[in-house]
Design a protein around this nucleic acid. Structure first.
Length: 180
DNA sequence: AGGAAGATCTACT
DNA sequence: GTAGATCTTCCTA
């Protein structure tokens, strides 16, 4: 699933009420980007998936139906995951990076930067650029509402590596990325 | 009520 | 390359 999501388009619709509050603009806004980096997290057997264990409030979502969002806070950053696992198990895919394709000017305002290169190239950066918070937890990403994923260009080549920044990783490449 | 942890980011060298 | 800021959730008392 982590590999499948590469090249797909992550779309965020900011409804006019929120758009007015954030930007003083009274119309719906569309922000979007191509997913370029993901990581896979398993359930209880994955030492990096601390959130899947001990019945944590938000970690519980990792056990629920595949295709919904799973959003939580780490180090003052909201991180966006898509729940994905076989029936009866737990797991999620962390979205680590996107390449902006629509609404770049608004993303810059939300991030407080003019730098194109560092706008959405990190899990905490992209949630800030798209105004993704726990408010969007548990919503299906196959419905066009406030946050969804649709088809994009099929990647030519997928690269892999170990997961970034985890204290105890599995002995296996679970980070996937494309170069575009 | 208080403290620790954490799948991060920024600014600095 | 790394120190320090950051903030929500969960654990303990």
């Amino acid at each position: 699933m982590a590999k499948e999501l590469l090249g797909k388009v992550l779309v965020r619709r900011i409804r006019k009420e929120l758009a007015e509050e954030l930007f003083g603009i009274k119309k719906d806004l569309i922000l979007a980007g191509i997913i370029t980096e993901t990581e896979a997290y398993f359930g209880e057997d994955d030492p990096a998936s601390v959130l899947a264990t001990r019945g944590r409030k938000f970690g519980r979502l990792m056990h629920e139906e595949p295709g919904i969002t799973f959003i939580y806070m780490v180090h003052a950053n909201w991180l966006l995951n898509i729940v994905a696992h076989p029936a009866g198990e737990a797991g999620a895919v962390l979205i680590r990076s996107i390449k902006p394709i629509s609404g770049v000017a608004y993303m810059k305002r939300l991030r407080g930067t003019n730098n194109d290169k560092n706008l959405t190239n990190g899990p905490g950066k992209l949630t800030k650029a798209l105004y993704i918070t726990k408010e969007l937890n548990g919503i299906p990403v196959y419905r066009k509402d406030r946050l969804w994923i649709c088809d994009g260009p099929a990647p030519e080549r997928i690269y892999t590596s170990r997961r970034i920044g985890v204290r105890r990783d599995l002995n296996r490449d679970l980070r996937f990325y494309i170069l575009i």
